[in-house]
C-alpha cells in the first residue's frame, strides 16, 4: 500500500469523525458536552504511527474541526491543541515500543489525558487571542465531563480503530 493510500485512509477516518461528531453525537449531549471522536482518532493514529504522523494528523484534523460548520472560533485553536496531543501520545508510542507491550488500558488512559490536554489548550488559547471562553469554573466542568465521556467511548472505538490503523501502517513499522 502506498503512502498516498494510507494518508487517504486516515483522512477518511478523520472526516467521518468530524461529521459524526457535529451532526449525530451533538443530538445527544451530556450537559452540552459531546464525546470528541476526532480526538480519539488522533490518539489512535499517534499510538500506532508515532509522534511525527501523530502531530501532522492532529494538526490537519484540528484544522477540519476549526473550519467545519458550527465552528465559530478563531481558526487554528483546535489545530494547535490536537497537534500537541498527537505529538505527546506519539512519544508514548515510542516508549511503549521499548516495553514491547500493547496494553489496552494504556490507550484508554492516553485518550483521557489527550482529552484533558486538548480541551485545556483550546480553552487557554481562547484567552490569548481574546476569543470566546466561558468562566474558569465552567471551563473546568466542561473539561472534566469531556475527559469522562471520551474515556467512555474510547474502549468501544479504540479496538476496531487500532486494528484498522495497524493494517494501514507500512510494513517496516509492523513490529509493535
Amino acid at each position: 500500500m502506498g503512502t498516498a493510500w494510507r494518508a487517504a485512509g486516515v483522512a477518511g477516518l478523520v472526516l467521518v469523525a468530524v461529521v459524526l461528531q457535529t451532526a449525530v453525537l451533538s443530538q445527544m449531549p451530556v450537559w452540552g458536552v459531546t464525546p470528541d471522536l476526532v480526538l480519539v482518532v488522533v490518539v489512535g493514529v499517534a499510538l500506532v504511527r508515532g509522534p511525527e504522523i501523530g502531530s501532522i494528523t492532529g494538526f490537519c484534523a484540528g484544522l477540519a474541526v476549526d473550519l467545519a460548520p458550527t465552528a465559530d472560533h478563531v481558526a487554528g485553536r483546535w489545530a494547535l491543541a490536537l497537534a500537541v496531543v498527537g505529538y505527546l501520545v506519539g512519544r508514548l508510542h515510542a516508549e511503549r515500543s521499548a516495553w514491547g507491550g500493547d496494553r489496552p488500558l494504556d490507550a484508554v488512559l492516553a485518550v483521557g489525558a489527550g482529552s484533558f490536554v486538548a480541551t485545556s489548550i483550546f480553552a487557554l488559547s481562547g484567552f490569548v487571542v481574546h476569543d470566546a471562553t466561558g468562566s474558569v469554573g465552567r471551563m473546568l466542568v466542561v473539561v472534566g465531563i469531556g475527559v469522562a465521556l471520551d474515556m467512555v467511548v474510547a474502549p468501544i472505538l479504540l479496538p476496531p480503530l487500532l486494528s484498522l490503523l495497524r493494517r494501514l501502517r507500512p510494513a517496516h513499522q509492523a513490529l509493535i
Binding site: 451532526a23 449531549p29 452540552g32 458536552v33 458550527t70 465552528a71 465559530d72 466561558g134
Partner: peptide
Amino acid sequence: VVGIGAAQSFTRTVT
C-alpha cells in the same frame, strides 16, 4: 438545525 456546536468550543452555535 442540522448540527449543534459542542460545549467544548465555549460558544453556543448551531448549523
